[in-house]
Design a binder for these strands. Structure first.
Lengths: 240, 240
DNA sequence: ACATACAGTCCTGTATACAGATAAATATGC
DNA sequence: GCATATTTATCTGTATACAGGACTGTATGT
C-alpha cells in the first residue's frame, strides 16, 4: 500500500484509527487522551478528532468526563462479564434464526470459508487468529438475516477483543473443532444443538476470562512485545 | 432545579434535545439537518452541535453522508422488524436471568410501581403511556443485573418509540393485563412462562407494526396534531 | 419545449483562536 | 520538613473564520 498520503476525508479515517487504538488498549484503561497530540499524530486538527472521539463515546469504547476530556474505557470485569453474556444471547438467537432462514448456499459458503481459512493456525499470530474468529462469528450471525444483531456483535467484539487475545492462546484447537461441529449442526438445521455448542463455546471461557480481567491489568503495562500486543503503535509519546 | 437557563455545559443538553427530536421524528425521515439553524435554535455554535450529532450517528438515530451532512434515519420497515426481533431476544434473555438472580425486593418494587403508576391510563396521553411502558420494560430488564442489556434496550426503545406511539393507541388494555401476568410469573420465577408472555406481548404486534411502517410514512407528514405528535417542536423553519 | 450548461448561493468540513478550567509546580509559612 | 497557598502552564470547550463542494435557479442553445 503506497498511500494514505495524509488527510483526505479525514473523519472516518480518524475514527477507524482511534477505534483500533481503543479496542487494542494501545490507549491504556482510564488513560486520558490528549487531543492535541492525537490530532498531530494523525495529521489533522482537533475538530475532526473530537468528532471521532464522540462517536466512540457513544459506542462505549471511550468515556467522556466533562471538563476533563476523553478517556479510554476502564477494564471492568463486571462489564466484560456482561458483554460475554450478551454475546451468548445474541449468537444463540442468531443461530436459531439462521436455522430457520439461512440459504443453504450461504451456510455452505461459510463452511467452505472455515475449511479454507479457519483451520491452519500454524504460523499465524494470535491477532490474526482472533481476527478470523471474529470474522467467523460475525458471518454466522449475519446468516440470521438481522442486521441489528450483526451491528451489536461488532460492537461487542471490539470491546472484548483485547481479552480474547489472551484467551485465544490457550484454546486454539478447541475452537477449531467446535467451529466445525457448529457448521455440521447448522447444515442439519438443528437449532438446539447449535445453541448448546455456542453456549459452551463461549461460556466455558468465562471463568478464566474474568480471572484475567481481575488480575490482568498488569499485562497491559508490560514493556512491549509482552503478551500478544507486539508492535502495537503506542500513542502518548508527547515529550512533555 | 431552577434553571438550565441557556447554554452552560451545552453538549449534553444538545445531545438530549436532538435525541428527542430524532426519536420522535420531529425531524422527518431522511430529512437533512441544517447545522446552522439547529445551532441557533439551541443557542450554541455549530461545533458542539456537530459533536452531539456524531454521537447520535453512532447510535443509529441519525445517519451521516460525507459531503452532504447529517440526516434523520430512514423509516425502514426491515430495520424496524429487526429491532423488534432484537427487543424480543433481549427481553426474553433478561427475564430469564431475572428469574435466576433478581432480589425479591426488586421484583416486588416493580410490581408495586406497576400497580401504582401503570394501571390507570385514563386521562393520559399516548406519549405518557408509551413512556411508562418503556420505563416498565427498562426496569424489568435491569432486574437481569446486566447493564449491557439495559443499554441496548434503551437504544432500541429510542429508535422504535415513534412506531409504538401508533401501536399503543390500540392495545392499552391488553398491555396492562400482560404486564400484570408477567409480574406474577416473575414472582414465581417461572422463566418459561415469562418468556412466552413477553414473546407474545411483543410479537403479536409485529404484523400491524410492519404494515404501519410500510404504509405509514404519510402520517408523519400530516399538518400538526394528527396522530400522537401533538405539539412537537418542529425544526427546519429556516426562511430560505 | 426540453435539455444542458453556468453562475450564484448556501452549507458543510476543517483549521484556528480564545477563554475558562484543571492540574502541576513552586514558593511560603508554620 | 511538611502542609498549604499561590502562581504557572497546559488542556479542554466553544466560537469563529475560511475554503471547497453541492445544490438551486436561470439562461442559453438546439
Amino acid at each position: 500500500m503506497p498511500g494514505e498520503t495524509a488527510n483526505p476525508a479525514s473523519v472516518d479515517r480518524i475514527y477507524d484509527a482511534v477505534r483500533e487504538l481503543a479496542a487494542s488498549y494501545a490507549i491504556k484503561p482510564d488513560e486520558r487522551i490528549n487531543e492535541g497530540s492525537l490530532a498531530k499524530s494523525l495529521g489533522a486538527s482537533r475538530t475532526p478528532v473530537r468528532e471521532a472521539l464522540n462517536r466512540l463515546v457513544a459506542e462505549d469504547l471511550l468515556v467522556f468526563h466533562p471538563g476533563k476530556g476523553f478517556f479510554c474505557r476502564a477494564l471492568d470485569p463486571q462489564q466484560i462479564f456482561d458483554l460475554y453474556e450478551l454475546r451468548v444471547i445474541i449468537e444463540e438467537a442468531a443461530v436459531t434464526l439462521a436455522c430457520e432462514r439461512a440459504e443453504d448456499s450461504d451456510i455452505e459458503a461459510l463452511r467452505l470459508d472455515l475449511m479454507t481459512n479457519g483451520l491452519d493456525y500454524e504460523g499465524k499470530s494470535v491477532k490474526e487468529l482472533v481476527a478470523y474468529d471474529e470474522h467467523f462469528h460475525q458471518t454466522l450471525v449475519s446468516l440470521s438475516g438481522n442486521g441489528e444483531l450483526v451491528k451489536r456483535l461488532r460492537n461487542i467484539n471490539a470491546r472484548i477483543r483485547f481479552v480474547r487475545w489472551f484467551d485465544m492462546e490457550q484454546r486454539i484447537s478447541v475452537t477449531r473443532g467446535e467451529h466445525r461441529e457448529l457448521m455440521d449442526q447448522l447444515a442439519k438445521r438443528d437449532a438446539a444443538a447449535c445453541r448448546n455448542i455456542l453456549r459452551g463455546h463461549i461460556e466455558k471461557r468465562l471463568d478464566q476470562i474474568i480471572a484475567f480481567a481481575r488480575a490482568g491489568y498488569s499485562a497491559l503495562y508490560l514493556p512491549d512485545s509482552q503478551g500478544p500486543l507486539t508492535g502495537s503503535p503506542l500513542i502518548a509519546s508527547s515529550g512533555r
